[in-house]
Design a protein around this nucleic acid. Structure first.
Length: 423
RNA sequence: GUGGCCGUAGCUCAGCCUGGUAGAGCUCCAGAUUGUGGAUCUGGCUGUCGCGGGUUCAAAUCCCGUCGGUCACCCCA
């Protein structure tokens, strides 16, 4: 209640979901869940609020600046979760014996960061997370990439819309280690490589020089990043091989190293082909994280795909479905004297699982039809004296305009409305 | 956190430069149309002109601050 925050607006970076936008969100979630199910992943979830230390112990204190954190009434330092992986690592550790390996789990958490918002980046978003735990073989890396590709394909996106850029930190590590760069310096080198696309080359050279690399070593690194290959990258080669025909969605790109410190092997990002948006998805292998978080030494890998950038891409490509009530039938009460009977039939139809709506008060027939089409009902069911006398009603297909008199029984009408047998 | 641009009806915006206490289109509501819809026509409702302060006889308009939005930087999901 301090500075002019208008309670009539959502907080900065937070979204209200009106029916139209919630429909978009549900469409995205439905696809995510469906593809994950087809790949044999099980859904899990954890608390949106976590101890602050869950994030600081791994990433250092500088991450606090990005966290939505505060002190609760019990004097606990807490943070809204900025990512799901630490929670997953904590959950799996103590209970991993309850599950056969590999563990394949997914979640759709709402994640939070305290940052100034801009396009594709809010203070809150939903992210599809899929992880595989307990598998060292690169087949798992390939499977995860395949899952991400199929997820995007299920929305109607094609290889003209997006590209998976695959890289390997292990290969980079070997290369850097050969030139004497390890530990902290290695991570600094990754940070410099990660920014290659957004910074002038001179600045990258400067950063690498500061780590202690010679001009020729820097030249080597830049060559690799620009499209060359690291001599020793068998894991990456194998992943590409195992992707089979799906490799046409991919390209090897050593500029990708991912910002997070905990990645250890294959890493990848998915970008839109036009390069207009932020990364659509990103992931990789983090074989040491579980041990660090939970003490249990299990290899793991995973990826995240946010709803914001994906939603923008789908909107740009015209791939979002029209918002729909899902209403089957709008009952038009043509004579107010029949309201009681109409109501009875309406409830019988609803008992049969049919989605039915109607006007609460006496309304002109024209208005009722208007309401019927406005809410996207597939059928209008007219209840009027003419038909009712002979125990009938009139069913109209609002798309085609066809009409038919039918017996006024819920079961008979169900046959026409649900199975769309006719009309 | 830093910088550029922006903030007028539910929505998109005009008006601001050259101060004289608000407009259009769409949406919404009603009627034309007392048993048939998505069209058309007519009428109607809605604004503390983001908020606070200053200059002025007078501020949507000029000045300052602030909040919010947006883009870029930083950083990354």
């Amino acid at each position: 209640m301090t500075f002019g925050t208008n309670p009539m607006n959502p907080l900065p970076g937070f979204r209200d979901f009106y029916p139209e936008t919630l429909a978009v969100r549900r469409h995205i979630f439905d696809k995510w869940r469906d593809v994950a199910r087809r790949y044999g992943f099980r859904e899990y979830d954890g608390p949106p609020l976590e101890p602050l230390e869950l994030y600081t112990q791994k990433s250092g204190d500088e991450i606090v600046g990005q966290l939505f954190n505060f002190v609760d009434k019990g004097e606990r330092a807490v943070a809204l979760r900025p990512e799901m992986t630490p929670t997953l690592a904590r959950m799996v550790g103590p209970h991993h014996r309850d599950y056969k390996k590999p563990i394949k789990w997914f979640a759709i958490p709402q994640l939070f960061r305290y940052e100034k918002q801009q396009r594709g980046r809010l203070r809150e978003h939903f992210q599809f997370n899929a992880d595989i735990i307990g598998e060292t073989d690169v087949s798992a890396d390939a499977e995860l990439i395949a899952l991400a590709i199929d997820t995007l394909r299920s929305f109607g996106l094609t290889k003209d819309d997006f590209v998976v850029r695959v890289s390997d930190r292990l290969a980079w590590q070997r290369h850097l280690a050969a030139t004497g760069i390890t530990g902290e310096q290695q991570y600094a080198a990754f940070q410099a490589i990660d920014k290659l696309e957004r910074e002038p080359e001179d600045k990258t050279r400067e950063k690498l020089a500061a780590i202690g690399l010679s001009p020729s070593q820097i030249g080597e690194i830049l060559d690799i990043a620009r499209g060359g290959t690291v001599a020793v990258a068998p894991e990456l080669d194998l992943v590409c091989l195992k992707l089979g025909s799906l490799f046409e969605y991919c390209q090897v790109d050593f500029k990708i190293v991912r910002g997070l410190a905990y990645y250890t092997g294959i890493v990848w990002e998915i970008h839109d082909r036009k390069g207009e948006l932020r990364a659509i998805a990103g992931g990789g292998r983090y074989d040491n994280l579980l041990k660090q978080v939970s003490g249990v030494d299990l290899p793991a890998l995973g990826f995240g795909m946010g709803d914001v950038v994906l939603g923008e891409l789908l909107k740009d490509r015209g791939l979002l479905p029209k918002a729909d009530w899902g209403l089957d039938c709008y009952v038009v009460i043509a004579d107010e004297g029949l309201r009681a009977e109409a109501l009875k039939l309406i409830h019988q139809l609803r008992d049969e699982g049919i989605a039915v709506d109607y006007a609460f008060t006496e309304t002109k027939v024209g208005k009722q039809f208007q309401a019927a089409s406005a809410c996207g009902a597939r059928y209008a069911l007219v209840i009027g004296p003419d038909e009712w006398k002979s125990g009938e009603v009139k069913l109209k297909n609002l798309a085609t305009g066809e009409e038919r008199r039918l017996p006024a029984g819920a079961m008979e009408l169900k046959g026409y409305i649900v199975e769309r047998a006719i009309l």
